[in-house]
């Protein structure tokens, strides 16, 4: 059993490492203080040499701990995966250690998690937003972020004054937008499923 062997080995690094519920590959919960040490052991002693994904997760506004960081590793020799998750201690300002020292590729993954979830990575070489603009005040993948988004100002002051354009919430307006199957190209254009409401007309109650 790979999972049992790994669990024993990882508990040698930190006694608090526990198995995590998983539908596919071996998966472990790990205290965030020993996260880097655990991942280093997996990389150096067990052949999990490739970081496939580094991401984060919001467990819900009222959940405690609210934020979890997750790492997917692949052994390129044995073609097996392992998943390691660690809960962030602080739910208000979640902090996780960077693993960009182990895998340089984690740099941008962690910037994405910082951008979309607001998890700050300690000792990261370049902790900036990667997708949204630098002055954007929200973290869109958090559970309390509405699907349509928030109203904000454009980031460029000159253009903001010149055009008067704002960042506006974009409600789905009867969406999802689907294309009907038809023999006529013109009728295949995607349209809202529910056309009773749109940007200008309020959504009917009930």
């Amino acid at each position: 059993m790979i999972a049992q062997d790994l669990l024993v080995a990882l508990q040698g690094v930190s006694s608090e490492v526990a198995e995590r519920e998983s539908a596919d590959w071996p998966s472990f919960n790990c205290p965030i203080d020993s996260l880097v040490a655990v991942l280093k052991v997996l990389r150096d002693n067990h052949g999990y040499d490739m970081l496939v994904d580094a991401t984060g997760m919001d467990n819900g506004v009222d959940a405690s701990p609210r934020f979890t960081v997750i790492y997917h590793l692949l052994s390129t020799a044995n073609h097996v995966y392992v998943r390691v998750a660690a809960d962030c201690a602080d739910s208000e300002n979640p902090v996780a250690p960077t693993v960009s020292g182990l895998w340089p590729g984690a740099d941008w993954h962690e910037r994405e998690a910082y951008d979309l979830l607001g998890i700050t990575y300690e000792n990261h070489p370049d902790m900036r937003r990667i997708l949204m603009w630098d002055s954007y005040p929200h973290h869109p993948l958090r559970k309390d972020f509405p699907l349509a988004g928030h109203e904000d100002d454009l980031w460029d002051e000159e253009i903001r004054e010149e055009t008067g354009t704002k960042v506006i919430p974009a409600p789905m307006a009867g969406g999802p937008f689907v294309s009907k199957s038809s023999n006529f190209e013109a009728q295949k254009e995607p349209r809202a499923k529910d056309e009773s409401w749109n940007e200008k007309k309020e959504k009917p109650e009930g």
Binding site: P140, A148, G149, H150, I159, V167, I168, A170, F177, P190
Partner: peptide, 17 residues
């Protein structure tokens, strides 16, 4: 019009700018 990206990140039509 922003097309299929009715999203917090996408300008809903370049005619806004």
């Amino acid at each position: 019009s922003g097309g299929m990206y009715r999203s917090y990140a996408t300008l809903q039509g370049v005619d806004r700018i």
